[in-house]
């Protein structure tokens, strides 16, 4: 178990300066995510162009892992369509839980920086909160929870 593997430079950077942080107004869809265990809350805002996520922002308060993961997610999904986002979600899930294929990991690009999380099972929910929230927003729901 190596802390440096969890808190990689990319993670620390995205925690310090989260990308696409703030509200989208008006937004075509939004959802709130909550991790009751640690009190993390974030809201994901989407602007949609048909099947495509034209723009995405998030705001909220959370630990370094959840903030960096959300920041990286916004960069990764902007401009992609629902089907691609679903595949990405599966790959991220595989990465976080250690069940994914190595090839999938390579396709993740910068998101692969979250790979250290799998050694810290207590933190998987921190990294996945934003993705569940994004899914809820895409599904037209209002809330997601890690519980």
């Amino acid at each position: 178990m190596d802390l440096k593997d969890l808190y990689r430079d990319v993670i620390l950077d995205h925690n310090r300066q989260p990308r696409n942080f703030g509200r989208l107004q008006p937004a075509d869809a939004q959802a709130e995510g909550h991790n009751p265990l640690c009190g993390d809350r974030l809201t994901v805002f989407l602007r949609l162009d048909g099947e495509r996520v034209a723009d995405i922002r998030f705001e909220g308060k959370g630990c370094a892992i959840s903030t960096a993961s959300a920041s990286l997610m916004t960069e990764a999904v902007r401009g992609r369509d629902r089907a691609a986002i679903r595949r990405l979600f599966d790959d991220v899930h595989g990465l976080l839980t250690g069940s994914g294929e190595h090839a999938a990991e390579l396709a993740l690009g910068k998101l692969a920086a979250l790979g250290g999380v799998r050694e810290f099972p207590a933190r998987v929910k921190c990294a996945s909160l934003c993705w569940h929230t994004l899914n809820a927003a895409l599904a037209g729901g209002a809330a997601a929870s890690t519980e």
């Binding site: 178990m1 630990c63 810290f120 933190r123």
Partner: peptide
């Protein structure tokens, strides 16, 4: 430093 990160670092 979020308490959750603190907890992980202390645990290590």
């Amino acid at each position: 430093v979020h308490p959750h990160d603190l907890g992980t670092i202390l645990d290590a």
